[in-house]
Simulated scan of single mutants.
Amino acid sequence: MFRTVVFTLRNNSTKILDLEKGKSISSKKFDMVNLLRKDGGFNREYVISASPADRDTSHLEESLSMLQNMKEPVPTIFKGSSSSLKITPIPTTLRTRGPEEFMANIRELILPIQNSLAQHKLFPMLNSREAIQVFMQLHVYAVWDSLSMLKCLQKHLTCESVPWVPLDHPEITRLINHLVLLEESDLDWNNKPHSHFEMYLDAMKQMHVDTSNVENFVELIRKGMSVLDAINSTRLEEGVAEYLKTTHEIVSSGKVHVVAGAFAFSREVIIPQIFSQILDQQDWRGNHARLSFYLQRHVDLAGEGFEAASVEMVKTLCGWDKQMWDEANRAAQESLRARNRLFNAIAKQIKLARRVEKIKL
């Protein structure tokens, strides 16, 4: 039985993916030649691939030349010249699990958590002005948190350096820049640019909800305090603090595929469903225009294909690497569970507020 290994050569480095073991190995430019030598005389099949965005393929062809000039019998696995590159497809019979299979696995694993969120006990409770006020006072931290996660993706997936250089995946760059444009400077109900966080604060003020706590939290960060120190210095419900710490851990991982997994499956896929549930509470929808606008805006944006594009982003970043898929999957599940705990905390506070109101009466 042959083992299939994919070599991706980019920026003078080689990324080797062993499909049998389901993990990737980063190595230097010609390490693949040494790997073939150690493999016992080319008794396994290998496939070399190059990124479509890779304009400089000289290092790939140099590697190919070295392979062809070796004394050992080299299997016909790759053909190339100075003007073109031809990639030999991986034989279907030798494939283990590819991006589509990994994606299907993530969807299957997170579906129960997503369904639980979509049917959360919190939503039927949002049938009064008082309940919505409690909801907004705690949920606003998730609005801020979502922007931070998006900015992390922008840092890694778009070119922010000077001088500018093109990146490998322009379709991902376009997606992230478009989302940042909307989240940081969307048009509000007065057709004026505002971030979604600022829109939410305005909606809170229209609802006479105290914004001082979250504004103080953001101000601490603006002055240079770390996120964790700001969390510990701010009076927050436990579910809110856990939610923020979960995202901070994901963002601080330094792994863009991990952040992308959490963003795609716990933000872009689930948020429109959640907001639709809230909007369905007819008792309040017509009376709170700014909050209604904010929620409806996110539902409407779901129809612009961001969900599908975000999922494709994860597929592109993880590729054939099982370890990366596993890490993206764990991040998505952790983020979804943190949101569930956040909603539990909000529901608990609404119940407490109602008990207090009954005592007053």
Score class of each variant (00 low, 15 high):
T211A: 14
R285D: 02
D31M: 02
A264K: 01
D210W: 09
E100W: 05
L35W: 02
R3E: 12
E237Q: 12
S252E: 11
G303M: 04
D202S: 08
A264F: 10
G98P: 02
V227D: 00
S58W: 02
E249K: 14
F306A: 08
S253I: 03
A262S: 14
A289M: 14
N340R: 06
A347P: 09
W189D: 07
E130K: 13
N287K: 14
M149D: 01
M324W: 03
F78Y: 10
G305M: 11
S146T: 13
K205P: 00
H288N: 11
P52W: 04
L175E: 00
A309R: 13
W189F: 05
L291K: 02
R337S: 07
V74T: 08
G261Y: 00
Q282A: 12
R235M: 10
S310F: 10
V6Q: 07
R330W: 08
K15F: 13
Y243F: 15
E160G: 15
G80R: 04
D280I: 00
K205C: 01
A131E: 03
W189H: 08
S81Q: 05
D210A: 09
G254F: 11
K21N: 10
V240M: 01
L167P: 04
E171P: 02
I77P: 00
S276L: 08
L342P: 03
M70Q: 11
L111M: 13
N213R: 15
I270F: 00
L94N: 07
Q277R: 14
Q323A: 12
K205Q: 14
K86V: 15
K360M: 14
W284R: 02
S65L: 11
I176S: 01
R354K: 13
S65D: 11
K23W: 11
E100L: 14
N115K: 10
N69W: 05
R339C: 06
M70C: 07
I16Y: 05
M1V: 01
D210S: 09
E100P: 07
P91N: 04
G224E: 06
H196P: 13
K151C: 07
D300I: 03
I346C: 02
F123Y: 15
L175W: 10
S276P: 06
D283R: 04
Y243R: 03
F123P: 08
G41R: 09
N177W: 00
L111I: 07
I359F: 15
K15M: 09
S84G: 04
L295I: 12
V356T: 12
S27G: 12
L147H: 03
L94W: 10
T234H: 02
V218G: 01
K348P: 00
F102K: 01
V74S: 01
